[in-house]
Design a protein around this nucleic acid. Structure first.
Lengths: 149, 149
DNA sequence: AGCGATTTAATCGCACACGATATAAATTCA
DNA sequence: TGAATTTATATCGTGTGCGATTAAATCGCT
């Protein structure tokens, strides 16, 4: 009895299936994306989140932990250990802001700046691997931004 | 000098910025989705990946670890500990398949089946929280599936 | 000036993800 | 048949994510 589910108990499942689609598609696509990047980033000695942090720093180098967190939508409990690993790898420096000792300033080192050249080929490789029209990528990106509003 | 980046060094960045958008939009949206679900799933005593696993099991209950992994696109190194936690919570049972002792069969318990009723309201709550037209959600979902092909 | 509230990072604990490796059972094939 | 190979999980180590808490610095208000 308990094994064979009666038909009436199946009814609520339809809703569960429906919503599952978007959240799971997002979950699966994000995991896939990480795996797609991995071989390229391994060559740079970066993880995927570390790569995202470096992208932000390559755009504007001295930044506080908080500003990085705003850009990446991550908080210090995630960023602090990540940044310590980047620091251990010699890619960034961390120091207290003398203007406000609560803040920590993260700045690229020469090595960190130099890595950008190595990373320059990553986007195109990924674009090829994805094999998706540029326009569709743009549309998808904009849609996703509204989800992450 | 090393602090002020010369203009020529900025050139390769454009590509880095471009591709960043899709991968980061995906990353951010997936993180947001997890946070959006959390309060609802806390009430059920489930994490987000556990909820996804339960969704799969609610659709077809006795399943091998491998079949679950195919459905979720996860391997045993992720699933085994997750399933052990579901088992510890009394939601599933795990046992070796007598037909093939390599396989492990995962089956819902009565408690696991009962939880589906509690979960029935989750999709609608999430749909409201997302505040996105149903059609747009569907289109986005299909796009994402092609990424995770 | 003083002191409670706020802001900013860091720390801690838990639960993923996943590559690499290990182990045991089933299958292949010489 | 039995050794080599393949298949199905489990284990281990590293690196996230994030809620909760802590600690220190600054701000605001009287």
């Amino acid at each position: 009895m308990s094994q064979k589910t009666p038909a009436s108990a199946d009814a609520p499942i339809e809703a569960l299936r429906l919503d599952n689609q978007l959240c799971f598609a997002l979950y699966g696509a994000a995991n896939r994306m990480t795996r797609l990047y991995r071989p390229m980033l391994d060559a740079l000695g970066l993880t995927y989140p570390q790569y995202l942090a470096m992208l932000v720093l390559w755009e504007a180098s001295p930044r506080t932990v908080g500003a990085l967190g705003d850009a990446l939508d991550l908080d210090s409990s995630t960023l602090t250990p990540l940044l310590k690993r980047l620091e251990a790898g010699g890619l960034v420096e961390r120091r207290r802001d003398p203007e406000d000792e609560r803040r920590v300033i993260v700045a690229l080192t020469d090595k960190g700046r130099a890595l950008r050249d190595q990373a320059a080929s990553v986007p195109e490789k990924l674009f090829c691997a994805l094999d998706m029209p540029l326009e569709a990528m743009g549309a998808l990106r904009e849609r996703l931004k509204t989800v992450a509003r």
